[in-house]
């Protein structure tokens, strides 16, 4: 990706700004789901079911993964590459674990016969969690690119270009993380 400009860049890098714009559009995407949820729920015939414990554990993993990434960036900036790598790998692993736990969560729901077409409440539940996992997988793809970069020793010393890449990837990851926390709280409150 190239930025063809010789204008002095203002406060925020255009790519970061663009990422924030993309995040705004994703927020709109999910708020459409949650508003539809509220509208539909108010019409009644709404089955409540408990969320399986996997979803709570997964919340902890994704929060931890964000924390790892957050500290890993600091380590990278301080040229503590070893710590950076360890934390990156842990964060990445925790991210994958999150996907696995979501999957196990859906499995547990199926065991108690809550499928996607059981009731409007379960339809919405699957809709929202599926849409979220798609966004997480997008984040994992971005992390994979970084991982390949690390394996190819591109991150062995701090550079502006790499820092930007890390920041973009991590910002997105923190977003899908916070988004999940919001969705979970929403789903609990709106059971």
């Amino acid at each position: 990706m190239s930025t063809l400009t010789d204008v002095k860049l203002k406060r925020i890098h255009p790519k970061k700004f663009a990422l924030w714009m993309a995040i705004v559009s994703m927020i709109m995407f999910f708020s459409a789901f949650t508003s539809a949820y509220i509208v539909r729920k108010s019409a009644g015939n709404w089955l409540s079911f408990p969320l399986p414990v996997e979803f709570y554990i997964s919340t902890i993993t994704i929060l931890l993964s964000s924390l790892c990434f957050y500290i890993s960036k600091k380590a990278y900036l301080e040229a503590n590459i070893k710590l950076f790598k360890i934390l990156f790998y842990s964060g990445f692993g925790l991210g994958l674990l999150f996907v696995l736990l979501q999957y196990l969560g859906w499995q547990s729901l199926h065991r108690i016969d809550i499928s996607i077409s059981t009731n409007q409440s379960s339809s919405f539940f699957y809709l929202i969690t599926y849409a979220h996992i798609l966004h997480v997988i997008g984040g994992i793809a971005a992390l994979l690119v970084t991982l390949i970069g690390i394996i190819r020793k591109r991150f062995d010393y701090p550079s502006d270009k790499r820092t930007l890449k890390l920041e973009l990837t991590y910002t997105y990851w923190h977003f899908v993380d916070l988004l999940w926390v919001y969705l979970l709280v929403f789903l609990i409150i709106q059971q």
């Binding site: 559009s25 994703m26 709109m28 995407f29 999910f30 708020s31 459409a32 789901f33 539809a36 539909r40 996607i116 077409s117 409007q120 339809s123 919405f124 699957y126 809709l127 849409a131």
Partner: peptide
């Protein structure tokens, strides 16, 4: 993005048996 959500829900209704 909002209409994309709507399209997703239609796709679910068509393919996954939901009745949004």
């Amino acid at each position: 993005p909002v209409i994309a959500s709507g399209f997703f829900m239609v796709l679910f209704d068509r393919a996954l048996g939901t009745s949004f």
